[in-house]
């Protein structure tokens, strides 16, 4: 393979093919996509992609979410979890974010971390202005399962009950969910948590692995 060192767009020094650029010689020979060659990769790739989606929809494969930026709503009829932590914090928006408004780009949030969580009738919606991106899962007999679930919420409501709760710890000394907050910040933790009719407004959610049986992703006029 006669490849020249990396060419850049500005100076236009390209790896010359034998006949390229000969103005008098008629046509220069260009590189081109050969359909059959592309199909060699495209067909197995399509099969694998279809397999991934089916596996996800059936809940056999965990999917990792790491979205945020805009506030979004998460609801569930019931949340059961083991290893629960909660502490306050501050999230920073991107420089000159259009969502900043008069907040100076900072949002006061409550970080909740749950080591292992099971959610029934999970619903997540993001307001995109005019329409909502709606994700529902776990409506059937299989429930949504999540590990290392961390949510930065501005609002959280529901009927909660805790086992072995410790309130007033320093956020840097938390142990139940394996996440530590900043030093000198109020926090609480519990062995188990159960929240019915959960409703959260989240500013940033990061989760470990989500298992989403009965996944449905669609646009909708109404949020959760």
């Amino acid at each position: 393979m006669a490849s020249s060192p990396d060419a850049t767009a500005s100076n236009g020094s390209t790896p010359e093919t034998p006949e390229s650029g000969s103005a008098a010689g008629g046509q220069d020979r260009r590189g081109r996509v050969r359909l059959r060659r592309a199909a060699v990769m495209a067909i197995p790739a399509t099969a694998v992609a279809a397999g991934l989606m089916i596996a996800t929809a059936q809940g056999a494969l965990g999917v990792q979410f790491a979205i945020s930026g805009m506030p979004f709503t998460v609801t569930a009829t019931e949340l059961n979890g083991t290893g629960f932590e909660q502490f306050g914090g501050l999230d920073n928006m991107a420089e000159d974010s259009p969502n900043a408004g008069d907040t100076g780009g900072q949002v006061l949030i409550v970080t909740s971390a749950i080591k292992n969580a099971t959610l029934d009738h999970l619903c997540q919606s993001v307001d995109l202005g005019g329409t909502n991106l709606l994700i529902t899962a776990g409506s059937g007999s299989d429930k949504v399962q999540a590990t290392d679930l961390t949510t930065d919420s501005t609002e959280l409501s529901g009927n909660a009950s805790f086992n072995n709760i410790e309130i007033g710890n320093d956020a840097s000394t938390l142990t139940k969910a394996g996440v530590q907050g900043p030093k000198g910040v109020f926090s609480q933790q519990a062995d188990t948590v159960r929240i019915a009719n959960l409703r959260q407004t989240n500013y940033a959610t990061t989760a470990g692995v989500f298992k989403l049986p009965g996944l449905k992703l669609r646009f909708s006029d109404q949020g959760c």
Partner: peptide, 15 residues
């Protein structure tokens, strides 16, 4: 994109 790059060959006859 990957499939197009995989199927690409240099020095083909012009269309």
């Amino acid at each position: 994109g990957s499939c197009l790059a995989f199927g690409w060959l240099p020095d083909q006859k012009p269309r």
